[in-house]
């Protein structure tokens, strides 16, 4: 099986690649359109801001390519947010494959932003991506913007209200937390993605 990591300049690419290696998969890091199109699985990682993330995908000529992919695609953290229609972060138009607008966490007393640390996953819909993941499982989050919950939400997390932490629409999937840094639960989720 061939897995590619889209090199859009995010700083967590190395960590995601190592996590896949721990599962026995050697993923290629690439921004080459034909390599991405030919892969069995495509992962869009990314840490940083929506504006620069989309600018980089445009610069590489990958926006329409990613939209047109038919194999399983996984966006991680910012990569998941880029799958949505737009992001309030810099008022950025995104890839638009998931019908949602990414919003900043509301200012609330005692609610610290970024949302940083381990929080619980609440499965909302049965899906092979969540096989073996239950209500008591924790994942590691670091983000200031989030995807509101909707019918695309496979799992949600509570932080000053509910937001979508695992999403799926057709062949596109997203995880707001960092599976590469979420211990056994994260490894299980990545393994599930590889087996889709």
């Amino acid at each position: 099986m061939s897995v590619v990591l889209v090199d859009a300049g995010g700083t967590n690419i190395g960590s995601v690649r190592y996590a896949l290696q721990r599962l026995g998969v050697d993923a290629a890091l690439t921004s080459d359109a034909s390599a991405i199109r030919a892969a069995d699985k495509v992962i869009l990682p990314g840490v940083g801001a929506a504006g620069p993330g989309m600018a980089r995908l445009r610069e590489l000529g990958l926006v329409d390519l990613i939209r047109s992919l038919t194999q399983p695609v996984l966006g991680v953290c910012l990569g998941m947010q880029l799958l949505c229609e737009r992001s309030e972060e810099g008022d950025t138009p995104c890839l638009g494959v998931v019908p949602a607008t990414v919003r900043r966490f509301d200012e609330q007393p005692g609610l610290r932003v970024p949302h940083m640390g381990w929080n619980r996953l609440r499965p909302r819909r049965a899906h092979p991506l969540l096989a073996g993941v239950g209500e008591d499982d924790w994942a590691y989050f670091v983000h200031s913007y989030a995807v509101p919950t909707g019918d695309y939400a496979l799992a949600t997390t509570d932080y000053g209200g509910e937001f979508a932490c695992v999403i799926q629409r057709g062949n596109f999937h997203g995880m707001q937390f960092h599976p590469e840094r979420s211990a056994q639960v994260g490894a299980r989720l990545l393994k599930n993605f590889l087996e889709l």
Binding site: A183, Q184, G186
Partner: peptide
């Protein structure tokens, strides 16, 4: 460390 560790 990054290669072997799966926590932040």
């Amino acid at each position: 460390v990054a290669r072997v560790i799966d926590i932040p």
